[in-house]
Design a protein around this nucleic acid. Structure first.
Lengths: 254, 254
DNA sequence: GACCACCGGTCGGCCATGCCGACCCCACCT
DNA sequence: AGGTGGGGTCGGCATGGCCGACCGGTGGTC
């Protein structure tokens, strides 16, 4: 893994910077934010703009992300094999469970949601495809951590952010949970990310048993849990769906 | 508009190439596809991979788009001012019309869908945010063309692709339609893109009356049309929504 | 099973390329 | 009017990235 192309890495850093700040950023802000000379930052921004990755507000001259990113992100989903195979299973799972279903993959130090099926009722819900969830505080994340030592290593020793009083923030506790996940074959997270929300997740593997993602059912504690624990029928549904997707992934390869 | 950074433009071309081909591409395919030396293409791909914009299949060594693009695409939507202000209006419009609602902006030579509200029934629908629609064959596109001479110029002289027998493929006919759009203040497209589908669109402007996007209601001909023409009540709804969004955009600026 | 063609990947030298910092112009505020 | 900060430009310097020759592995073919 030898050197990277400087200007490209810098361009990526600029895009991430623009994605991070909620508002638009000016040229000087970008330059100082990354420790670049103004001229350098401008050259990169100009090129990114020509390519459609960045847009500039004509009034203020400030920069924000561009539409091409949305288009390419959509293309990513189109090509994504795991997602394509999981679509129908996720749908069935949501209907059977009567709850929201997420499909997540490991990305950087979090879980990237690549598919999201709304809870099958008529309530207003926002699509969360493309958003990130924390590894240590969600069922999806704990499944991926349990089966991916590299990801666990990269997460470090914490303590991690506590979103609720029940969030696991210490390495010893998290590793114990991961061991339990491996033993049982599924993970849960009851009010560890949001108050009142509980979820169950199971691993998806490719043909060579490599972990490639996870499915998860998520909903209100009152409907997902029963007597303090996750309803066994839900666990069964999630694990069945995960196995079905894994099998599906293995098949079409030969 | 002086020179662009070579390596960045090339990286963008590679991403677009990967987005275009449905399947994964090998290093050599990328290199020859863009007329680059293998070493050069490899350097760019390596960097893109480190940044998460490209992923490599461990087995075949072939490349595909990476997850970071999805995340950034989502961030684009988060920041997008037009979309944020239009969310609630689009929702209302879909409920009132009982049909699908799209919100589109001009991007390259097409319409990029930045928001999509499902038709309010329980049918299975796929989210089309991030996908592109042709300018000459959709209501959204014709609105944007009618009010943006630059876009019209870039589209050239056709003849354009005919998706159905009713698609407008000749410049004279299209320009006449655009004139009509400007005169009436709205555009329609009845079975010009897909058989059996009709839509109505109206322009969204910012505070300085610049065209920034368009809203559109789309549905089956049988429900959208009445006696061969689009139902007037639908036209009114769409135009009202467009005006509301435009007003909303003008407000919060000062 | 030996060959071959082609794959992805590496390396080092040469030189074009992109980086930098000083500079410009404009808008806004003092 | 002057000052301060914004975005944007420019040209010289040297560094960073391009190229083409070169590896090692793999899958197909005869």
């Amino acid at each position: 893994m030898s050197g990277a192309i400087q200007s490209l890495s810098r361009a990526a850093a600029i895009l991430r910077l623009l994605a991070g700040g909620e508002r638009r950023l000016g040229l000087s802000e970008v330059a100082t934010g990354l420790g670049l000379a103004k001229g350098t930052a401008h050259g990169i921004l100009r090129t990114l703009q020509q390519e459609g990755f960045v847009e500039q507000d004509p009034d203020s001259g400030k920069y924000q992300l561009g539409a091409e990113l949305l288009r390419l992100g959509q293309s990513y989903l189109d090509v994504h094999e795991l997602r394509a195979r999981a679509l129908v299973w996720a749908d069935d799972l949501a209907r059977a469970a009567g709850e929201t279903v997420y499909l997540g993959v490991l990305h950087q130090r979090g879980v990237l949601v690549v598919h999201h099926v709304f809870r099958p009722d008529d309530s207003r819900q926002v699509l969360e495809v493309g958003s990130m969830q924390p590894l240590h505080a969600t069922a999806l994340g704990k499944v991926l951590l349990a089966y991916d030592p590299v990801a666990r290593g990269e997460l470090g020793d914490g303590p991690w952010e506590a979103f609720t009083p029940r969030t696991v923030t210490e390495p010893a506790a998290l590793d114990a949970q991961c061991a339990l996940v491996r033993e049982r074959g599924w993970a849960d997270a009851v009010e560890e990310t949001w108050e009142g929300v509980a979820s169950v997740a199971a691993l998806i593997q490719d043909r060579r048993r490599n972990p490639v993602g996870a499915v998860c059912v998520s909903g209100a504690v009152e409907t997902v849990c029963e007597g303090g624990a996750v309803r066994p029928s839900l666990v069964a549904s999630v694990r069945t769906a995960a196995r079905a997707i894994s099998r599906d992934l293995g098949a079409h390869r030969f």
